[in-house]
Structures are given as structure tokens and as C-alpha cells.
Write a protein that binds this DNA or RNA. Structure first.
Length: 621
RNA sequence: GCGCGCGUAGCUCAAUCGGAUAGAGCAUCGGUCUUCGAAGCCGAGGGUUGGGGGUUCAAGUCCCUCCGCGCGCGCCA
């Protein structure tokens, strides 16, 4: 029985249902067991969609593929959706959608939802993103952890899911204690501390604590002079002293020393000020309410180890506590021989908290791909002990979305000329400057839509363009891959770039304004005009638009933002071709209104999709 | 040594559970603005999908093997 909302569905879903029913009927099996393999056609000559199920199902049912395809094609009910299907080749079933059906499906999606159906799920989703370290400036790695995580959070939210954005700060432990001890020792004014100062102090403290027994041994073995050995011994002693001081600072901090905690808070706040400023520049939704660092879990670590010991999953090994796995040599250390906890312990506590207390049936870690082994171990440990179950027993999906490195032109991790890590702040400043440069150059043209705009307006557009360039370039690639950071390519307004999509949006908006329409951000500009789909490029545009909801669902399912970018690029291309072929403002009614409405729908899908990527859609550029 | 990831056009990248002739962008070359924003559109050239073997109606995709690159591997995070 057809649902009342049936007509709101996209063509792929409708065809899936109809073919599922037909295959079920032909083969005498339940619909759930039939995958109709409905796919968009690669070649327009084969129609709009195809079902490939007959070829793979034929053998197991003792039929010839072609014969099965014929029977499915005769049986399937495509009334109101498509023309009669045609069988081709070894058993492809080709489908051409009906123009009237396309029009009514478009009218059906032309509201604030844009065809997206909210997922009714009782559990939440947790996205671990950003992952900054206190006392350290953000670098390019944080760019990816932040924007990919923000995009996935937005996509899940768009689908009606409750999302917890968790910024798992590195705000606890020896390195922080070391930095704190060093700053206090030299009497630094923590109220006037800047992040670069703090960063220098952090690195100095790290260097002071750097023990180099290997170097010492090597120096002895290779017969270095006594001066060199004495120097290394002194460094060794100095490092031990620094580490001892840091350890005692950490102990006092852990014991709740009020003065230390106050100072600790100051360096945390100093770090986070930059994080939140960066979030604003990046157009990422990340605030203090999303910060829950390692310190949050500090009182939950002991019980983690105890529970693993009690369950028999953890054993002692050379004084340390480890969890072993049946299928690999590598154990997971959860307590050091000196009784201290490790980051794995914190991560175990965090998974447990996120699944059980944040009630998440999905926990996504947007973290550097190099930590793949670590997360595999942590997640497996959680599954062994049952911490991947929500309180009502639902199994939670634990997934590490490991992203690749950002490389420089030399294919090596991005560095400045002097060999320093590139800070995120400097990288974004350059991107904004480049975006602004492009926008101002074009605004100089007296015919440009941006000509005569005020300085702050041009700056705002330039910023949106520069940030879009960087984010789109990142999000449009497969997450796990490394990529070369090339600002020239990214800010280009041609090709598969953020600015190109933004341009398509601004251009459409300008057409609607020229038609004298009000152009609301997220509502139809002309909700009542009948849509007609006639010209080939109109059809292409219609098919692209109708794919939107499915793409958003795919992105949530696969955690691949690049699919959304590919969709937006296809849609912008389809619109540009349509715009070239089909006059809008100069067409006669009712074609004019139909095309205006198609344009308006395109405009809102582009803006909605860009918003899911965390990219702004300027009205003019 | 063990484990993981990646090799696709000159460059940067796509390719849905294995589907029809492997697609885009950049670059190159050629068309296209006195007509809605040419940041656009239309077209051309460019490929042994790292090599070899296998599975099948069908392989860039799955399996085996070799080569190359990157990353990770017990008391840091």
C-alpha cells in the first residue's frame, strides 16, 4: 500500500520499491531479500535509471539473465513514474522517467525540507572533532579534524539526529603539567599570556624534559670526547629534574590544589580563545559547550582498569596492565607499571561515556589516520567488555574516520620555509587574503555585481570565498587520502571548487532578484507556479535536484563528505547548462514561472548543501 | 620483521554491493558575449587503471603474487 508521502520520495527510492515488489513477485521471495540494484544510468542513451538485479539473481534461480529481466520488466508497475522499461544487453533493465512525474516530484520537494525526510531515531550521534591540545597552537591537522567533523555533525543534524560534538581536548597529563610548572617557575603572568607565548613555553618545557639515553649510549659507543658525554649526562640530569618537577606538579593538580587548578584553567582558557576565534573564521559550530577534555575523565580512569581486570580481559604484564586480543600480537596498555594511566585509558572511558551517558548509537572519531591501530584496539576492547551497548542494549557503531595528511608542494607534511609547522591561523589568514584579493579584483569591473560595495562588504565576501576554497578543497577529496595544499588551485573560481559553486548560487539569486521576486533564505520564492520539465538540460537539472535527499543520506551513512561536493558540482554544472540552453526571464508564461521556480529550487539546494559543508553562500560575489 | 593505507590522463582527483565505451577539473588546442552574471557554455586531443596471474556473464573494484610510496608497531599523547 502506497504511503501518503510516497510522492515526496526521490525517483531512486520509488524505483527501488517498485522493482523490489516485482522481483519478489517473479521469484516468489520476500521483498526484503530482493536487492533491485537500481542505479542512475551512466549513459543517457540507456535512460535515467537501470536495474541490474536480473543478472546476478538469474543463476541462483535457474534462469537465464535476459529471461528474468524480461519477466521483471513485464511485471514491474511503474505507473506514474516512468515509461515502459526496456531490457538491454545481458539483462540490464533501463528506465526512463516520465516528464510529468519529474515535475510533480520537484514540486513535492520544493519546500523548506528539500525532500529530506527526518530520521526518527531515539539515540544520539557523537562526533569527536577538532581535538586541540592545550598550550599548542592549532596546525593544519586540526583543520581536517574540525571541518570534516563539523560537516558530519551538520549532516546528521539536518537528518534530524541529536548530535554531540565532542572536542576532546588534550588538557591533562604530564606535558601540560610540565608547561604549567615551567611557567610558574619563571613567574609568567598567566593573565596576560598569549597563545604564541604559551606555545613557546610548551615547546621549551618539552625540550627541557627530553631525555636522550639513546644519544648518550651512542656517544659512549662511538667514543665521543668526555665533553660531549658530560654534556649529554648533564642534559640527562636536567631532563630528570624537569620531569620530576612536572610529575609533582601533576600530582598536586590531580589532588585538586586550588592555586594550581586556577592557573591550569588560565592556560586552558588562553588556548581555547584561539580555538573559538578560529571556529568563527572557519564557520564551524564549535564553542565552549563542546569542550570535554581528558581532564573530564580523570576520575573515571581507575574504574576502567578495575572493570577490565574484574572481567578477566586485562592482565598484568611486567607491572603494566594490558588487554590482549585473540587476532593480534599487539596488546593495549591501559595502566603503566608506575600506576599511571595512558591515553588508551582515557579513550576507553570516553567511549563508555559517549555510548552510555550520551546515549549514542554511533560514535565517530575524526582523527588522524595514523591512529588507526590505536582506535582499532580501543574499540575492540570496548566491544569485548560490552561498552558498545547503549543502556537499552542497542549496539553502538564505533568508527574511526582517519584522515590523511596535508602536504606541501614537496609532498612532505606542510612546513614553513624555516621548517616550522604551519599554524592554522596563518594558513587561514592567507586563504582569506587570497579570497579577498580575487573578490576585489572582480569588483573593480564597473559591470560587476559587486562593484561599488563597501569595504566591509567586500571583506566579508572575500572571507567567505577564501574559506570556502580551503574547506571545499579538503571536503571534496576522499577523507583517508593525503592531499597537497595548493591555495592557487583552491581559490580558483573555475572547475570543481568552492567558489565555483558559490558563484552558481549568486548568479541564480541575481536572476530571481531581477525577476522582481523576494528571495527568502530557506523558503520557496514562488511556491505555486506549476513546473514543467521539457528541454534535455531541464531534465538533467531535474534529475540532479531530485538526487539531493539521497545524497545527504549517503553522506551520513558512508561518512564521506566528498559525495556532497560531487553532487553540488554536478548540480551547478547542470544548472549552468540549463541556463545556457533555456531562457528564463525572457520566456513566455507559464514557462517563465516554471523555470524561475526551478532556478529558485536549485538556488536553495545549493545553499543548503553548502551549509552542510559549513560554507556560506554570499548573495553577490 | 609484522600490520595498515595508497598506486587511475602531463597535473589534481572521480568512478554507488563487481555493471554497458574508466569520468571530471586544471593545463593545451578550437568554437561561443550588441540577448537573463563568459567566474559560464559547447567541442578536441590525452589511459596497458603500477606489473603478472586468478575468480565470472561482467574486474579500476574481489582473491593471490611481485614492485614502488607513505604510515604505525608496550609503559608519550
Amino acid at each position: 500500500m502506497a504511503q501518503p508521502s510516497d510522492e515526496l520520495l526521490d525517483p531512486a527510492t520509488m524505483l527501488d520499491r517498485r522493482f523490489r515488489a516485482a522481483i519478489s513477485s517473479v521469484l516468489g521471495i520476500v521483498p526484503e531479500a530482493c536487492d533491485p540494484q537500481v542505479r542512475p544510468s551512466g549513459d543517457p542513451r540507456h535512460g535515467d535509471f537501470q536495474s541490474n538485479a536480473a543478472m546476478s539473481l538469474a543463476k541462483s534461480h535457474g534462469m537465464k539473465p535476459r529471461e528474468l529481466a524480461e519477466r521483471i520488466a513485464r511485471t514491474v508497475d511503474l505507473a506514474g513514474i516512468a515509461l515502459a522499461p526496456e531490457v538491454a544487453g545481458p539483462g540490464f533493465i533501463n528506465i526512463r522517467l516520465d516528464a510529468g512525474a519529474l515535475a510533480s516530484m520537484l514540486e513535492g520537494m520544493d519546500d523548506a525540507r528539500l525532500g529530506i525526510v527526518p530520521q526518527r531515531r531515539i539515540h544520539a550521534v557523537t562526533i569527536d572533532l577538532c581535538g586541540v591540545n592545550v598550550a599548542k597552537q592549532m596546525h593544519v591537522g586540526h583543520l581536517r579534524a574540525t571541518i570534516i567533523g563539523d560537516c558530519l555533525a551538520r549532516v546528521h543534524e539536518r537528518l534530524g539526529r541529536k548530535v554531540h560534538r565532542e572536542n576532546h581536548l588534550g588538557d591533562w597529563g604530564l606535558p601540560i603539567a610540565m608547561t604549567l610548572a615551567a611557567l610558574r617557575r619563571r613567574g609568567a603572568d598567566l593573565d596576560r599570556l598569549t597563545l604564541p607565548d604559551l606555545n613557546v613555553a610548551y615547546r621549551a618545557a618539552q625540550a627541557a624534559g627530553a631525555d636522550d639515553p639513546g644519544g648518550l649510549a651512542a656517544a659512549r659507543a662511538t667514543g665521543c670526547g668526555p665533553h660531549r658525554i658530560a654534556e649529554l649526562e648533564a642534559q640527562h640530569e636536567g631532563a630528570r629534574a624537569a620531569v620530576e618537577e612536572a610529575k609533582s606538579t601533576l600530582l598536586r593538580l590531580q589532588a585538586g590544589d586550588a592555586e594550581l587548578l586556577r592557573d591550569w584553567r588560565k592556560i586552558v582558557d588562553c588556548t581555547m580563545r584561539e580555538v573559538f576565534e578560529t571556529a568563527v573564521i572557519l564557520n564551524v559550530r564549535l564553542g565552549p559547550e563542546h569542550s570535554r577534555g581528558e581532564s573530564f575523565y580523570r576520575d573515571r580512569l581507575g574504574i576502567v582498569v578495575e572493570d577490565f581486570l574484574e572481567s578477566g580481559l586485562a592482565t598484568e604484564d611486567a607491572g603494566a596492565i594490558v588487554v590482549r586480543f585473540a587476532d593480534r600480537e599487539r596488546p593495549l596498555l591501559i595502566r603503566k607499571s608506575d600506576g599511571g594511566f595512558l591515553y588508551a585509558t582515557t579513550d576507553l572511558a570516553a567511549v563508555r561515556f559517549r555510548v552510555q551517558e550520551l546515549d549514542s548509537d554511533r560514535v565517530v572519531y575524526v582523527v588522524d589516520a595514523r591512529q588507526r591501530d590505536h582506535f582499532k584496539d580501543v574499540f575492540d576492547a570496548c566491544r569485548l567488555i560490552g561498552w558498545d551497548r547503549t543502556s537499552d542494549g542497542e549496539r553502538s557503531e564505533l568508527v574511526h574516520l582517519g584522515f590523511g595528511a596535508v602536504l606541501g608542494a614537496d609532498k612532505r607534511p606542510l612546513k614553513t620555509r624555516s621548517g616550522e609547522n604551519v599554524t592554522l591561523a596563518s594558513l587561514l589568514a592567507e586563504a582569506v587574503a587570497r579570497g579577498e584579493e580575487e573578490v576585489r579584483a572582480r569588483a573593480a569591473d564597473p559591470d560587476a555585481a559587486t562593484h561599488g560595495l563597501s569595504d566591509p562588504e567586500l571583506h566579508a565576501i572575500g572571507r567567505a570565498v577564501g574559506i570556502a576554497a580551503v574547506k571545499y578543497a579538503d571536503l571534496s577529496l576522499e577523507v583517508s587520502r593525503d592531499y597537497v595544499f595548493d591555495l592557487d588551485r583552491m581559490v580558483s573560481f573555475q572547475g570543481d571548487t568552492g567558489p565555483y559553486i558559490q558563484y552558481a548560487h549568486a548568479r541564480i539569486r541575481s536572476i530571481l532578484v531581477k525577476a522582481g521576486l523576494e528571495v527568502p533564505v530557506d523558503r520557496p520564492a514562488l511556491p505555486d507556479a506549476p513546473i514543467a520539465v521539457a528541454a534535455p538540460s531541464e531534465r538533467d537539472l531535474a534529475l540532479a535536484l531530485l538526487a539531493y535527499a539521497g545524497v545527504v543520506e549517503d553522506v551520513a551513512r558512508t561518512l564521506e563528505p566528498s559525495r556532497l561536493c560531487a553532487f553540488l558540482h554536478r548540480l551547478a554544472n547542470a544548472f549552468n547548462a540549463f541556463y545556457h540552453d533555456c531562457p528564463v526571464l525572457k520566456a513566455d508564461e507559464p514557462t517563465r514561472s516554471s523555470r524561475l521556480r526551478l532556478s529558485d529550487l536549485t538556488r536553495r539546494v545549493l545553499a543548503d548543501g553548502l551549509a552542510l559543508l559549513g560554507i556560506e553562500s554570499p548573495a553577490r560575489m
